[in-house]
Amino acid sequence: MRRPMLAVLTVAAVALVATATAAQAATTYVVATDGSGNYTTIQAALSAAKSGDTISVKAGTYRGQVSIPAAKSGITIKGATGTSSDIVITGNVPQSTGGATGSATVLNLAANTTITGVTIANTYGIGSQALALYAGGDRQVYRNVRLLGRQDTFLSWGGTGSKQVRQYVYKSYIEGDVDFIYGNGAVVIDSTTIKSLDRGSSNNGFVTAAATNATNRYGILITRSTLQGPSATQTVALGRCWHAGNAADAIGQVLIRESTLGGHIRQAGAWQDMSGFSWKTCRFNEYNNTGAGATHGTSDRPQMSASTAAGYTSQKYLAGADGWNPVQP
């Protein structure tokens, strides 16, 4: 007669433990420069946070590097106001002194992270590579973010060899001049404004520099986006072929599809050689673009066919072996 009651109590106890665990996983830490939150720096909040936690950042300017180590997976950092320009994470360290990891204003090596509603900037300016964001973890999502820099603004990097990380950037803003979207990850940049800055030259830089490993089908996809530029027409290339460390198997892959290209994009020479490697050794294509910078009339602007493009969607770039699909309609 008593055993059923014990079973009910045991089930109830398990339910209480599960509820407590869920509540613990949902902890939100508030960061505010004026001391009105739990912490005054994002880094301090990250030190306390566990997988599943959220860091809500109040309006303000936060200086110095924010580093999210690989052990801090599953964390969300979100701007509290929903307006990305209200929350600015900024640094000015060049790669010439800090290296790629030390230069990055945000160094995100963790998987399953989400960052929304913030600005990430490196204000070093012209003269050296200077990263705003180093995205080195798998299954990362960036929504409503502003990535500001000059050379090497946004790096997606999975390490040497065929290992690949995946990132999804949605309804955001990225600006820079030289190779400012680059790396060997599988990156989808969707419904985003991409602005090339004016260097006061007939060469105003390159939007992408992909180093995709030859064994990986997918690299950088820019889709449903708008490419804007400086006033000088036909001075910006869509990308160049980066063989990182002179690796022969870094056969970059870039597709720009269903996007609007401004008149700053070169008509001929939109894809460029780099460090002695011909752009033709890489996998560069366009599909169904519009705008003054889009052309279908020159042999050095390869256009992907509709049948092939069906295999190069956002979902396919990001699916991997686990079927990850963060893509917004």
Rank of each mutant, 00 (worst) to 15 (best):
P4A: 14
T10S: 14
A12R: 06
V14W: 08
V14Q: 06
V17W: 08
A20Y: 05
A23F: 04
A25C: 00
Y29P: 02
T33H: 02
Y39W: 09
T40L: 02
T40Q: 07
A45V: 02
A49T: 06
K50F: 06
S56F: 01
K58I: 00
Y62I: 05
R63L: 05
Q65A: 13
V66P: 00
S67F: 14
K72N: 08
G74P: 10
T83F: 01
G98E: 07
A100N: 04
S103F: 06
A104W: 12
L107N: 14
N112M: 06
T113R: 08
I120P: 01
N122E: 12
I126M: 13
Q129V: 07
L131V: 04
G137S: 10
R139H: 14
V141F: 05
Y142Q: 08
Q151T: 12
L155K: 09
G161D: 15
G161F: 08
S162T: 12
S162Y: 07
K163W: 10
V165Y: 03
R166F: 10
R166N: 07
Q167C: 11
V169M: 15
I174S: 06
G176K: 06
G176S: 05
F180E: 10
G183F: 01
G183M: 03
N184A: 14
G185N: 11
G185S: 15
I189K: 04
S191W: 05
K195P: 00
K195I: 00
L197E: 11
S202E: 04
N204P: 07
V207Q: 06
V207E: 03
T212H: 10
T215I: 07
S225Y: 10
S225H: 06
S225C: 10
Q234P: 04
A237L: 09
L238W: 10
W242I: 05
H243Y: 03
A248Q: 15
A250G: 00
L255F: 10
L255C: 03
S259F: 03
Q267S: 12
A268D: 10
K280H: 11
T281R: 11
T290C: 05
G291E: 08
S299W: 08
D300R: 05
P302N: 04
G311V: 02
A319D: 03
D322S: 10
